[in-house]
């Protein structure tokens, strides 16, 4: 809460969080591949839905035939027919449809 308050009060300091490497990075390649770095765990895994935990909240990917690939500590790739990605945000969940 203290961190959230400080960020809300000083938006210019948000880049320090990115530099420190704690912020989740999501790279989408078309609708077939989604690379997620700096996640903190797998919350849900099914063929239609993958939910990953990040420091800012859960990251959700929905679609068909979803598979986790190249799973390394803090990094993985979601492959499949990705239809929807819900990115974590401070105030609440925001959605981005692929």
């Amino acid at each position: 809460m203290k961190h959230r308050r400080r960020a809300r009060g000083l938006p210019a300091l948000e880049w320090t969080e990115d530099l420190s490497g704690g912020c989740a990075r999501v790279t989408a390649v078309g609708g077939r591949s989604l690379r997620v770095e700096n996640h903190t765990g797998v919350l849900e895994l099914s063929e239609t839905r993958v939910v990953l935990n990040t420091r800012r909240g859960p990251l959700c990917a929905e679609g068909r035939d979803l598979t986790l690939c190249d799973i390394r500590p803090g990094t993985l790739v979601i492959r499949g027919d990705i239809r929807r990605v819900d990115l974590p945000c401070k105030g609440g969940a925001s959605s981005d449809e692929a």
């Binding site: 765990g41 797998v42 895994l45 598979t67 986790l68 690939c69 190249d70 799973i71 500590p73």
Partner: peptide, 17 residues
């Protein structure tokens, strides 16, 4: 999910799950 998480935490690289 827990199993994947635990494997990832222990440094076991999974090519596909």
């Amino acid at each position: 999910e827990k199993l994947v998480q635990e494997a990832s935490r222990r440094g076991i690289s999974l090519a596909e799950a």
